[in-house]
Amino acid sequence: MIVAEGKPVEKILEMVAPFKKVLIAGCRGCVTVCLTGGEKEVGILASQIRMARSKDGNPIEILEQTEERQCDAEYNAKFLENVEQVDAIVSLACGIGIQYLGEKYPATPIFPGVNTLMLGANIDVGKWEERCMACGDCVLDKTGGICPITRCSKSLLNGPCGGSQYGKCEVSTPAKEDIPCGWQLIYDRLSALGQLDKMKEIIPSKNWLRAKGPRTYVREDLTLDRS
């Protein structure tokens, strides 16, 4: 799932400063699941902005709408009636949704209400961890199912660096939780699987071009000729 965090409201207030009527658009996909951009957060942000603007003597009208996914044009079509009424849109979808909704309504300025952070797993309520960087060239088969690109701070492919100490990564700081060394995790898993010999296998340097954008992906077997 895509994990996002709410943008500081002062940034959003700056973005919408020139406008009198704004739509806050939520998404029922990943950002609802990661508790950042669903109907609940749309309501909270709307209320907060209304109050902030009232306080500044510059009232704003805010419409609220949340639809299935902002990364699909068909769902974005549902925003039409509201978009027509407003001066600008704040989207609480991920970066994809924000852009895609913007493309649907090119005449209306659109602003991000969230920072899109990562592809992560939901560890528990309110806790997420990155598990994939979408490098386009998966090596999980060689690393016991643990991604060195994401879990190693340096994205090393062939074992840890000298900064691996007691299973932790030297990047760990007292301020944040200890980061486990990705290669320690891989070693432990492979050892549990009885596949430690895989550690000896040299993973050739990656084709990072596959991780570089702008990327497109087309499946000829699925593309539809509508003519």
């Binding site: 500081p8 409201v9 002062e10 207030l13 909270i44 907060q48 902005i49 109050m51 902030a52 306080k55």
Partner: peptide
């Protein structure tokens, strides 16, 4: 915190 952010 939300109130503090907007000075309420």
């Amino acid at each position: 915190a939300l109130l503090n952010q907007v000075g309420l």
